[in-house]
Design a binder for these strands. Structure first.
Lengths: 234, 234
DNA sequence: GCAAAAGTGTTTTCACTACACCCATGA
DNA sequence: TCATGGGTGTAGTGAAAACACTTTTGC
């Protein structure tokens, strides 16, 4: 079998337009936010949309997503996970486009305003999301469901909070996700029992006069926590 | 804005070959099995591979997956879920092909031997899987991880067992997934406490002289079980 | 009558829940 | 001094885990 023949094996097969769309979540220590963009090109120019683009021939789809995220937020190495492909033949009324959706969790305090402004972007709180183009509303819904599910077994909150965060901040994040109040004593007790945080001596006084101690996430300890077979659920 | 203009908006954008691959799981009341196919076309003809094909221009990717599954196993309406897209630019050494992987759970007693033979297929137990083409080994690994995770909150076992099954059969499935022995008293107690099974008067005597009662899954009761906010974990 | 799998209850253990007050500080 | 959010302990409840013997029947 000659490998070189292979280039011809797939001739005659139809090819497709392939895009990525990113659902970008943030958290401002009060509520979960969504980053949306005004579409800059026809068709549907000016409508609110997820950030997206056609994929590049020299990049994997994930790399394409990373690149568009970098361009539009100035952030590298963000938390990025595949959500789902959207491929109904008429989802784009003009021409068939297959879109692979990714969701991303970013630190709202770190994104670059310049990039965001250049792309005509805006943070929306989840209950004030405007109408979105195409099936982007469905993508968002699916992403929220997935995020909620994922939160049950993975410490996603640390990707949204600043590198140094307080326990009350983290609790508010979980309250947003689960959409219910949590008991602060029980929350703190369980969280600290996991022994995956590093306490600092600094306090954050932005949200109280007494101030709350700042912590960092300890990836190493978390890894061995998981390796020991325990499950992360708050 | 004229909608008809849109057909031209995407001109000049590169198009890609898009395929689906299906990881097909079965369960023979002893162990979890994987359905593999000998590739019928060059390149790599004769090698073991997941079942797959290029997608159709008149079908969504999921529909394409359903169709190839129907052709190769004779089964319709099977449990089918998207796994992940595989899109590194050199994953297929001949030409760039983007593949969307799906995993499927089928009743090993229901698939059509004719279709399977026509496609040169074979059931392998998970620890005797031969080397697979391209990144199909990676796909399988990812699918097993996902299946294991999914089992924790969804009753996937019922899709693999025959329509009428015994509690010991179901327990063996969970023992396979979790890779550990379970206590039969605790298993039975918890399972029955969910009240989502219908007991029949028939017994299955294939695996014991005493015989074990056959049960069916009650989808309606399961739906209200979930609606009541409880979580399915065995 | 015996081998082989099905089926059955109770006790212990541990994790989750509910619950209320003091602390530190800036204004 | 008071308003605000941060931080702490304990008792009670319920679910999971550990554990061993009897039943049925084909051979």
């Amino acid at each position: 079998m000659k490998l070189l023949d292979k280039a011809h094996m797939y001739e005659g097969q139809e090819k497709f337009l392939v895009a990525v769309d990113c659902i970008v979540f943030g958290f401002d220590s009060k509520e979960i936010k969504l980053l949306l963009f005004r579409r800059r090109v026809e068709p549907l120019k000016g409508k609110w949309s997820l950030i997206g683009s056609f994929i590049k021939d020299y990049l994997s789809i994930e790399e394409s997503a990373k690149q568009i995220l970098y361009e539009s937020t100035g952030l590298k190495d963000v938390y990025l996970r595949e959500l789902k492909t959207y491929s109904t033949i008429d989802r784009d009324p003009g021409e068939r486009v297959i879109s692979v959706a990714y969701y991303s969790l970013i630190r709202i305090d770190e994104y670059k305003i310049e990039s965001v402004e250049k792309y005509d972007a805006h943070w929306f709180s989840l209950d004030e999301v405007p109408e979105l183009i195409l099936d982007h509303g469905q993508m968002l819904e699916d992403a929220i469901t997935k995020l909620r599910l994922k939160t049950k077994y993975e410490p996603v909150g640390f990707n949204l909070l600043p590198e140094k965060f307080t326990i009350p901040q983290l609790q508010i994040f979980y309250e947003c996700i689960y959409q219910k109040k949590l008991d602060n004593r029980n929350f703190r007790k369980k969280l600290l029992s996991f022994d995956i945080l590093i306490k600092s001596n600094e306090k954050d006084k932005l949200s109280s006069k007494k101030g709350a101690f700042l912590y960092r996430f300890n990836q190493k300890k978390f890894d061995s926590f998981i390796a020991s077979g325990r499950s992360f659920e708050l």
